[in-house]
């Protein structure tokens, strides 16, 4: 079985939004200096799920694939250290500022170049922009089924049983292989790369493929091909005001507080 996991590098999502700045001209987010990029939390769970499938189904091969500018090979190395077998980086100036359709096209082209695959795992959404479309469009592009927000996958021959997260529990759906599954955080804490895993990952070569390598259609990628446009971008501000309720007795204060809460529609 061959599992391909799509992973994305994002700015550390644990940093409070107020630390970010926005460039009003290019409408781009500028993370605070020195902020370490990390693997998107949902994608990391996709790698975790792939590793769990591999443990249960010996002979499974996992390929981690990422796209982005800069030193994105770090997230592939992280996936390799966790237990992936091979890694591929997609890097080209032409890829930049693509939207979900563009990204799905690039990934689809790369996956077609890889050739054989049984299962493609993506995070349910990237933890930076939270759009959550790429996985589904990728399935559409490849012409295979998609199951979204999975918390567990059980392989049964040429089919898989996927536990999908619901608001009040989960449902189990069956899908034929090959297919795309987007993975949710309910998978649980991803494993810490083992020491041996890190050592072996460091020794592995990660090839970088360009637009020409995968034969991407220039008309379908980049900002020009985008189906959507960012018209404005702002950092949410949260104002807090503190009002101290004073009264002669505690009972009186409690009544005043209750009235105030009703007035502000908190209760």
């Amino acid at each position: 079985m061959h599992i391909i996991v799509c992973v994305k590098q994002i700015p550390d999502p644990e940093v409070p939004p107020a630390k970010f700045k926005i460039d009003p001209d290019t409408k781009k987010v500028m993370p605070p200096p020195g902020l370490p990029p990390v693997i998107s939390v949902f994608d990391e769970r996709a790698v975790e799920l792939a590793c769990r499938i591999k443990e249960k189904n010996p002979g499974t091969k996992i390929t981690a694939i990422t796209m982005g500018p800069g030193k994105v090979s770090d997230v592939v190395k992280h996936a390799l250290a966790m237990g992936a077998d091979e890694g591929i980086v997609l890097q080209d100036k032409a890829f930049e500022d693509s939207d979900s359709f563009g990204n799905a096209h690039i990934l689809a082209k790369a996956i077609q170049k890889i050739g054989s695959y049984d299962l493609i795992l993506c995070g349910r959404q990237a933890a930076d922009w939270d759009i959550g479309q790429t996985g589904s469009i990728l399935a559409e592009t490849l012409g295979i089924p998609v199951v979204t927000v999975a918390k567990d996958i059980e392989v049964a021959g040429d089919k898989i049983k996927v536990s999908r997260v619901m608001e009040d529990g989960y449902e189990v759906v069956e899908a034929p292989l090959p297919c795309v599954v987007t993975v949710s955080n309910e998978v649980g804490l991803p494993r810490l790369p083992s020491g041996m895993g890190i050592i072996q990952a460091a020794r592995k070569q990660v090839p970088a493929w360009t637009a020409a390598d995968i034969g991407a259609d220039p008309a379908k990628i980049g900002p020009a091909a985008a189906h959507s446009e960012i018209t404005s971008l702002f950092i949410p501000t949260r104002d807090t005001t503190c009002e101290v309720i004073t009264a002669d007795t505690l009972a009186e204060a409690a009544v005043k507080l209750a009235l105030k809460l009703r007035e502000t529609k908190v209760v």
Binding site: L189, R191, L192, S194, G195, M196
Partner: peptide
């Protein structure tokens, strides 16, 4: 435990991550 078996208390894992 941590480097060969990847076995450790969950909070240790979070700390190391």
């Amino acid at each position: 435990l941590t480097m060969m078996q990847s076995k450790m208390p969950e909070n240790i894992q979070l700390m190391l991550r």
